[in-house]
Design a protein around this nucleic acid. Structure first.
Lengths: 357, 357
DNA sequence: TCCCTGCGGGAAAGGGCTTTCTCTGCGGTA
DNA sequence: TACCGCAGAGAAAGCCCTTTCCCGCAGGGA
């Protein structure tokens, strides 16, 4: 690899001059030398060593982002928002997938700190795990102590600025909608119970049901992975245990899609026999059939807000922005059926016993 | 930020010793000193400056990846494959989204070169654009000349190793299937015509039709963005121009989902009145209703292969692996209807197609 | 004519780390 | 007792760049 001094030598100038030309320094350089340098750069196909540059200018410019998985639509949308602001401000993003592994999160905080990022954004759900939360907080605090900025999206338990989707209100909206439609036997297809996102959404849902004189017993909740297959599987378990269910709330849209798959496999008509409500309003929600009724979160906006906080002026105290959830009525939630399916037995002719993956 | 010499000073040792302890060097250090260093590291919350490290060890370890968009399922799957191998070998991945912007691709090649990546992988479609192709090839060649390894996925026009999905064969499979089902008026919802992926798939499709004595006139092809909305819009244009169509081939699954949306909006029953075939077999393909008949590409495997090539032994000449396409029959392709829709008007809503997976 | 100013350029000091080379002191051999 | 070898620690030379500081020189004012 050609280095700066190679370029300088070839152009017959000092490295200092070469550097100035290449970086468009404010210091003036005569056109003659400038051209010689540029020619040398082209001939040698010179590309500056980014590490050396980053080391030399102590300028911290990149921003680190830790998400569960960028290719999950939920995070893809948030990331889009983050990117938009970062690009506007000429910042590079370093995005890391933790795949919901707390240890990996911790590691990535170190890694990104080591890469001298100017700010750190953690997006996703928090964990009900005190030891971990404390550890993470310590690391974040250490980072902030050295001038780093931190923002979290959807995790309340940390220092730094926070952008929070109103998960609880969203759960409430889903519950109220189903109650309004006359549903009494409502099952929940939930994500891992260790995630605060799961419990927050659940809490809102429970509150809505309670207010309507209904309840949400644990036996009507099934916890599984926060993805399509988890949703399919949890729905199957739910249905097996309680065939009387007239509605299912899935705690995210991926799970809702899995739920729909299971219901289809069991030939249960949605929403005639059973209603489904999702959560997040991922782009695909409008393209499944029937189109998914769900709770929308302003995902892109959450990213925009978080990045703006972290790149904007520093505040004396951590800020906290709560972004509202909104119910999107489509076709998977309808009035509760008159009679239960109890008579008709378990799904006549379920072509396949279970949801496949 | 604490530095290595801070740690060394605090532990009362030289920076050399501190470095050896921290990096687990093979050089022996007495337990006494080792513990002092470790304690200092913990107290100071020391994290090595990654840039300084990368600069000091000339060891190039990270691998650069340029894709169109990681959050697009097509690339998400490929990336999964790349990651798997990279992680196994302890390599860090730097992933960049070009959003199908050739200039950005060029920039990212420079950027990644500047970051001293050990190898570069470009995934996605090539462009029918000679000037750009030449430029990119020059950059890649320059990079290879300095010892960098290069692999491309799904782009034939470049030097370096190549992993190619058999797009042409895939197009052929789709065409043959529809011909076999008796379709004669087949429309194509295509991606941008500047992409080689589009033209390759189209070529295979055309070949299949030609072999069956049918043809594929330009007026039955609509080019649009390679995404859901592009598919929806192209389908609408196609239908407006030629209401006799009994089948549509969408050149990727996202477009196919858009096509299904348009057909649903127009109350055309799939597959009774009109068949649809997609391409790629993205995970969501089995969850739309009716489940999408499509051409499967071994996406994860493509990633695995490419990363293995690039991290494996160097070959005297560029290697080239072609991975086969495979038809996945689900519920959106059926026999061509007897009569045209001209008479029958809007379809009696077929609610659900059938089996998933 | 002399001095000051300002411009264009180079020398050199970091930036934080790794690693080779060197040095010290100890145990063991002749 | 003299010498050798080696283990364990430190000194210092990079790695490649940026940027401050300094210098020489030409032009302008006194």
């Amino acid at each position: 690899m050609a280095t700066l001094s190679d370029v300088a030598r070839r152009a017959g100038v000092s490295p200092a001059t070469a550097s100035r030309v290449i970086n468009g320094s404010s210091k003036p350089v005569t056109d003659e030398l400038r051209e010689r340098v540029l020619a040398a750069v082209a001939e040698l196909q010179y590309v500056p060593n980014a590490h050396a540059q980053l080391l030399a200018r102590s300028h911290r410019s990149a921003v680190g982002v830790i998400v569960h998985d960028v290719s999950d639509p939920y995070f893809a949308e948030i990331t889009r928002g983050l990117q938009r602001v970062a690009t506007d401000q000429g910042r590079l993003l370093m995005i890391c997938n933790s795949y919901r592994d707390p240890d990996r999160e911790l590691e990535y905080v170190e890694l990104l700190r080591g890469h001298q990022v100017a700010a750190l954004i953690l997006a996703g759900s928090g964990y009900h795990d005190e030891a971990f939360t404390r550890q993470l907080n310590e690391k974040l605090a250490a980072y902030e102590a050295t001038g780093g900025r931190v923002a979290v999206i959807g995790r309340h338990e940390h220092s730094g600025d926070a952008v929070m989707p109103d998960n609880r209100a969203g759960g409430y909206l889903a519950g109220r909608e189903l109650c309004g439609l006359g549903h009494r036997a409502i099952g929940v297809v939930a994500g891992p119970r260790i995630l605060t996102t799961t419990t927050d959404r659940l809490a809102g849902l429970r509150q809505a049901l309670t207010e309507q004189g209904r309840e949400l017993p644990e036996r009507r909740i099934r916890y599984a992975e926060f993805d399509r297959d988890g949703g399919a599987e949890a729905t199957a378990r739910l249905l097996d245990a309680d065939p009387e269910l007239t509605a299912i709330v899935a705690l995210n849209d991926s799970m809702a899609i899995g739920a729909l798959a299971t219901l289809r496999a069991r030939s249960l008509a949605v929403p005639q026999q059973i209603s489904v409500v999702g959560f997040d309003d991922m782009p695909i929600a409008q393209d499944v059939t029937p189109a998914l009724t769900t709770v929308r979160l302003p995902l892109v906006d959450m990213g925009v807000r978080a990045m703006s906080l972290v790149l904007g002026a520093e505040a004396p105290a951590p800020r906290r922005e709560v972004l509202p959830a909104e119910l999107v009525r489509r076709d998977t939630a309808g009035p509760a059926p008159r009679s239960t399916r109890a008579a008709s037995g378990s799904a006549p002719r379920a072509r396949r016993g279970d949801a496949t993956s």
